[in-house]
Design a protein around this nucleic acid. Structure first.
Lengths: 226, 226
DNA sequence: TATTGATCGATACACTGTATCGCGCGATGC
DNA sequence: GCATCGCGCGATACAGTGTATCGATCAATA
């Protein structure tokens, strides 16, 4: 093809000044909008106006990008309060809140060791605020609270998604799950479970989370102050 | 191409009698051997000597297959014991054990509502064994224990994998993580955390799990018998 | 026996993460 | 100032994914 009919190379848009922060922000933006499965290296690169391979100068794999996303969110998690109990409660609540703002976090929490700077800074803040706790008790206590929060948040987000999947509101959800459970319970194979689901009081997500957390904190208190 | 040179259609291997159970078993076998990312519909189908599309007569999507896998494992989880405390402890321990036998379970636990027959049967067994607990307290209590177990197991498996990834044994792990943490702590940005990691007692996975579980059960006991 | 209907699975599609490697550009040496 | 070198970038390629489509095939029916 002759020069004349060959188009000039597009005058490169000022080569996007890239860095990990911009990449991670783009990825988080995609995940916030459309969930974790909307995060592909191609889409992230597209948001940044860049070819996919460009990202590999900054990360070695997609998993690393996910690690960076999780660590970035940990920058928002800073427990506050006086005394170990308030600190741990705050740790749990702020983590849960972060997962509400970034539902994809539920998919990632607990999936890989958190060794990034922001996660470590969070750990530092927690440990520093736990000065009134015996040194050897700190790790088990924080680990236990972390475990509870990870599991509780996962369950909560999973349920929320399932609700949303059937229709938009709780009505549709009950209209679709209710009948299934009703039919299943009608078989008589789960009498005790049926009684609980049908007759026991139902708590909303907030209360459920807090009650479980109270159980745990009560138990910790009993052993700590012993 | 003339008939003469065209090969006869292979005399069909007795069309594999398929059913969900066989499909799920094949998928679990793959996942046990090489992790969840080794489970693709093509590979599952190959194990069964069948085309990939054949599976869609039995499941509507891959997610459904994963749901079936999780439910199948729940058949193994049957808490035993006398009194609510033993039952809940057994529930936690057997779930953890199942995750040790099927590490991929850690990736799935808590990710979707568990409404399958085996999961419900597990729920029935738990609730039935909790006859000594107030009806309205059962859901919150079981939910809390479930949350703790999900989070604790995820953390534990994640750490185990990270260890395995660096080398095979704990030596290599410490040789690779240790220096990183050492260098990071050397910056002086995480003094409290550094003290805990360096000076506090370190518990193994079993103890960590049990201590957290004890915290929780103690807290539950305090509120239940009130 | 001819026709219909359902069923099965090969093929195709859009998309993924990432290895490869030729091109083009900036820096270096003459 | 010019030629050469080296290197980094990113287009292309590859192997794999989940699943929609739809033609061929076979059993059941008229």
């Amino acid at each position: 093809m002759l020069v004349w009919e060959r188009p000039e190379p597009p005058n490169r848009p000022v080569p996007s000044p890239l860095n990990r922060e911009r990449i991670v922000r783009a990825a988080i933006q995609l995940a916030d909008a459309d969930g974790l499965e909307a995060v592909s290296l191609r889409k992230v690169a597209a948001v940044l106006g860049v070819g996919p391979m460009r990202l590999y100068s900054y990360i070695a794999s997609k998993d690393e990008l996910l690690d960076l996303m999780v660590d970035a969110v940990h920058a928002e998690i800073r427990p506050v309060g006086d005394g170990w109990r308030e600190v741990l409660r705050s740790l749990a609540e702020t983590t849960r809140q972060a997962a509400h703002e970034h539902e994809w976090l539920a998919d990632l929490l607990g999936g890989r060791p958190r060794l990034g700077p922001h996660a470590l800074a969070r750990g530092e803040a927690v440990v520093a605020a736990l000065g009134d706790v015996d040194l050897d008790a700190i790790m088990p206590v924080v680990t236990a609270v972390d475990a509870y929060v990870i599991g509780a948040v996962r369950r909560e987000i999973a349920e929320r998604r399932a609700e949303r999947a059937t229709g938009m509101d709780e009505k549709q959800w009950q209209a679709s799950l209710g009948p299934y459970l009703e039919r299943t319970f009608a078989t008589g194979r789960f009498p005790a479970l049926a009684t609980v689901v049908r007759d026991a009081a139902h708590l909303d997500a907030d209360h459920t989370f807090r009650i479980g957390l109270d159980f745990l904190l009560d138990g910790i208190e009993a052993r700590i102050s012993r």
